[in-house]
């Protein structure tokens, strides 16, 4: 077995996603410590041409599986080609994103290779050749360190938890085209619906403004949206308001919604239930607006305003807009 790390790159329409750069950044750091190199694999349709870009981000070799059968991601269609590759090149570790794609592929790899798996990791340490992986468990109520007993280790890396690779000196990389083990998809998409487009994706937003039941009704959520847009961020919600049908599920932050980690998180009319906190607690700065001074959200907030969110939010939006106008 080598000391190399294989990164499973993710792209959409030929453009690499930010998680790909984060995977390459961490893989480069770890591979260097272990005396290995970083390799990457790109799968999809029409991805051949963009593959060489990964050289500049630390990949010494890129495997390309470009096939019409891979146009849409389906775990059971993608997995066989990837499993074959791992068996052949014998990496020490395989890094995937803790994304729908990575979370669907990683257990398939681990099952067929009978290997170690650690999901949604937030830290990685190598010392004397041994590997230690940090990851939140119990929905973030505890932090665990794991040690693989066998290799390869299959790991999915939490989004935004690792520093991305920056474009280096345009290094060359070898490209190898893979034969795609074509299998028929066993699932068929019969319907898709897009939510309003043009908005910032919640997981990637630098600022998230969330509203809870304290906003009194769906008619007041424009206040949340306006502040989010003044700050260049995305709107979020608690489960209580999603369940009440005030906001779409896609906006739900928390244990059964999304985990976000923006630089600024504003919680308005949110009580701060445990299940909400685990989805936003790792934000860099947290602001809470709540009329109840004893609301648990204040325990995690860096700055708090005890008051009526319906009054505070528009004032805050105004103040931010003024600031942005001044430049």
């Amino acid at each position: 077995m080598s000391n190399n790390i294989l990164v499973v790159a993710e792209q959409a329409d030929g453009k690499f996603k930010s998680i790909t750069h984060q995977l390459l950044g961490e893989a480069s750091r770890v591979a260097q410590q272990m005396g290995g190199i970083v390799e990457a694999v790109v799968m999809g349709q029409g991805v051949k041409d963009s593959a060489s870009q990964l050289g500049a981000f630390g990949a010494r070799k890129v495997y390309v599986a470009d096939d019409a059968a891979l146009a849409r991601f389906d775990g059971s269609v993608y997995a066989p080609t990837l499993i074959e590759l791992v068996k052949r090149i014998q990496p020490k570790m395989v890094f995937l994103g803790a994304t729908p794609l990575g979370l669907a592929l990683a257990p398939r790899l681990a099952t067929h290779l009978q290997s170690a798996l650690t999901s949604d990791i937030t830290g990685f340490a190598v010392s004397d050749g041994s590997v230690r992986v940090t990851r939140p468990v119990y929905a973030g109520r505890a932090m665990a360190v794991y040690e693989p007993k066998t290799f390869p280790l299959i790991a999915t890396l939490r989004q935004n938890a690792f520093a991305p690779a920056t474009s280096g000196d345009g290094a060359q990389c070898d490209i190898e085209t893979l034969a795609v083990t074509a299998t028929q998809p066993k699932t068929k998409v019969v319907e898709t619906s897009k939510s309003a487009s043009g908005k910032v994706e919640l997981n990637e937003a630098p600022v998230v403004v969330s509203g809870g039941r304290g906003l009194q009704g769906p008619e007041n959520f424009h206040l949340v949206e306006e502040l989010a847009s003044a700050l260049g961020g995305a709107a979020g919600a608690t489960r209580a308001v999603v369940d009440a049908g005030w906001r779409p599920y896609a906006e739900q932050v928390g244990q059964t919604g999304k985990t976000v980690s923006p630089t600024l998180y504003v919680a308005a009319g949110v009580s701060g239930a445990m299940q909400h906190l685990v989805g936003m607690k790792t934000s860099k700065v947290i602001v809470a607006i709540n009329k109840d001074p004893d609301a648990p959200i204040f325990k995690v907030a860096d700055y708090g305003i005890v008051g009526d969110a319906l009054k505070i939010l528009p004032l805050l939006t105004d103040e931010i807009r003024k600031l942005k106008e001044q430049g």
Binding site: Q114, G140, A144, G304, L315
Partner: peptide, 23 residues
């Protein structure tokens, strides 16, 4: 194939300051 070797509480967040005065 993989074992937990250590478990800790997550780093605690300090509660911050409440801002005073009129809205």
């Amino acid at each position: 194939r993989v074992q937990m070797v250590k478990l800790d509480m997550p780093p605690a967040r300090q509660s911050g300051r409440l801002l005073q005065g009129e809205p």
